Amino acid sequence: MAIKKSAKGRSIIISPTVITLMVAVALIAGVQFQKMSGDLGFDTRSRAGNSAPSGPHFNLNIIGVPKDKTASMTGSAGHRIFVPLAGKCNITLSPGEFQVLDGNCTDNNGAAFQLPNPDPNNDGVTEYSVYARALGKPGGKSTTTTCATDPVTGEIYCSVYSMVLIREKGKSSFSNVSQQLLYIYYDLNGDGKPERYNLFNEALQDYFWSYDNNGLKLAQLRFYDVSTYVNP
């Protein structure tokens, strides 16, 4: 039995049953807050030492190679895509479960990757998040931009935001690149302000990542089942 002093100095007796109820209420409130935070899109997972969320994820390695690959990698269903160590190539995107459909981006056909629609309502809250980091020999850099085609004019539009990875010396940490890889920001209506279009938005078609490599040996992407708020 606990004894607590009141403001006037008198003792108030608190029974063990009351204490147990108070602890239970506090625990339930904590669980409900954590659940609510998850429902609202807050990332409640702990961070690993590399700044990425902890927990299950789909891993995709984009590997820069000095020579073109000749083997067919269509339907490889792996976790890697080969790109030129220096130069550009396109990675075609299509909706579906995470899967590499064509792992060779060094040939004329480019590569192909499948991933779910990240934001079907285009409300700026993703259903999963992408984290990326640069690995390999220091000094490499890559720029990845999300693009798509206007179904009426056939013109290609690329987002004003790009994922830029630079391999610095020392430890490499992950950063959240959901805004750059899962959306296109472009002024389609001509009002002077870029609008936000989620991947596979019907306003555009034939989505792809334009990958421009300048010596980066490895771009590592991880897709986590956590939400991200992106800018309007």
Rank of each mutant, 00 (worst) to 15 (best):
K35C: 03
G38R: 09
G64Q: 06
L27D: 08
L204Q: 08
S178H: 05
D68Q: 14
R80W: 04
R10M: 06
L21K: 09
Y161C: 02
V31P: 00
K5R: 13
D68R: 15
S227Y: 04
T153V: 07
S76L: 02
I156Y: 00
G154Y: 13
F42E: 12
I91D: 01
E127Q: 13
A48H: 09
S46Y: 02
G78K: 09
K67P: 00
Q179S: 14
M22H: 12
I14W: 08
A219I: 07
C105T: 01
I28V: 15
K217I: 05
F223Q: 02
N61H: 10
G170K: 09
T126R: 03
E195V: 05
L135I: 03
K169R: 08
L216E: 01
C158L: 03
V100I: 03
Q180I: 05
L40R: 07
S51Q: 11
V18K: 14
F33S: 15
A7P: 00
D123Q: 13
D225E: 14
R80Y: 09
D187S: 10
S129G: 09
A71P: 04
N90K: 12
K137E: 15
V164N: 07
Q205T: 15
I3G: 12
V100A: 05
R196F: 12
L85V: 05
I3Q: 15
Q205E: 15
L221D: 10
S210D: 05
